[in-house]
């Protein structure tokens, strides 16, 4: 009873911090069913929700956005983990590698996307290098890496943007690795390969899991990278939401709230997974 009373004030503070999102969810829900916002009829109607959720483009947007953010998160995680495993000592080259890997950490998503455009566009720097070595003759020969349906440019830009953050986490995890555990395994006869497979990798993965989930949520919600590098069809969820939000037609503007709810629901799943991972592994 006393413990519950002690928990009340901090929980209220946490609710206050979350309240803009919770109010946003409430408003988006009311606007989705036609009670509030643009084109509101004043009474509850599920037509808009059903309309938006039964449209193929909505599901293509959700699926494509999940594919892009999952691919970028996976690539960034693999690179960050490999870098942390390879360059974990106090040697000078390892320290240089750590500085290089984390150097782009504060570069905004927008700058990553703008640079990707300059590098990967059909007349971008990569195409010029391929021309110089005789692999292509005209810009049209260059495979499309931006505005492409496979989302290669977008995935690469998001990967590049997220590697430094995951590398910082991976280095911190390795730094705090329990030497006693490895020592005990070695004393019991474990080979270096077994140590890596049974101790180092699992510890690294557990330590990185919350950050990996957070990166997935950031990549999923990023608007500026998507609007600069993604194709028109399928449109990513963030771009589709913004387009509907700015639509001159009031009826279509209301669709933005249904899409915003979808985005918030995906983020809520990521938040739950993040806390679960932290509770399970970070103690």
């Amino acid at each position: 009873m006393q413990r519950a009373a002690l928990a009340l004030r901090p929980m209220l503070l946490a609710l206050v911090v979350a309240s803009p999102v919770l109010i946003g969810v409430l408003y988006a829900a009311l606007a989705s069913v036609g009670v509030a916002g643009a084109g509101a009829s004043g009474h509850v109607a599920l037509d808009r929700v059903v309309d938006v959720l039964s449209t193929r483009s909505t599901w293509r947007a959700i699926g494509w956005s999940l594919y892009v953010s999952a691919s970028a998160t996976l690539l960034a995680t693999l690179v960050a983990a490999a870098v942390a495993m390879r360059f974990g000592t106090i040697r000078r080259t390892d320290r240089a590698a750590r500085v290089l890997a984390t150097f782009p950490l504060p570069v905004p998503h927008l700058v990553a996307a703008a640079t990707a455009l300059m590098l990967f566009a059909q007349s971008g720097l990569l195409a010029r290098v391929l021309f110089a070595v005789g692999l292509i003759d005209v810009p049209a020969d260059m495979p499309a890496l931006v505005y492409d349906r496979a989302g290669v440019g977008l995935i690469l830009a998001l990967t590049w943007k997220e590697i430094p953050f995951l590398a910082v986490v991976a280095f911190a995890v390795r730094h705090s690795e329990h030497d006693a555990l490895s020592e005990a395994a070695r004393t019991l006869g474990a080979q270096p390969a077994q140590l890596r497979r049974l101790i180092t990798w699992p510890l690294l993965w557990r330590g990185m899991a919350p950050a990996v989930i957070a990166v997935f949520a950031f990549a999923l919600g990023s608007y500026e990278t998507a609007v600069l590098l993604a194709p028109v069809d399928p449109a990513p969820l963030a771009v589709l939401t913004m387009e509907r939000f700015a639509d001159p037609s009031l009826a279509r503007r209301g669709d933005a709230y249904v899409l915003a709810l979808v985005g918030l629901a995906l983020a809520a799943v990521a938040v739950a997974a993040h806390e679960w991972a932290r509770a399970r592994w970070s103690a």
Binding site: A14, L15, V17, A18, P20, V21, L22, I23, G24, V25, L26, Y27, A28, A214, A217, F218, L220, G221, Y223, L237, A238, T241, M242, F245, A256, Y257, L259, A260, L261, G263, L264, L266, A267, A268, A270, V271, A272, H274, E275
Partner: peptide
């Protein structure tokens, strides 16, 4: 988890609300 919500929420969805 509550405090992490505003961090993880897509900015566009947060802005709409």
């Amino acid at each position: 988890a509550l405090v992490f919500l505003p961090v993880a929420a897509p900015p566009i969805a947060l802005g709409a609300g």
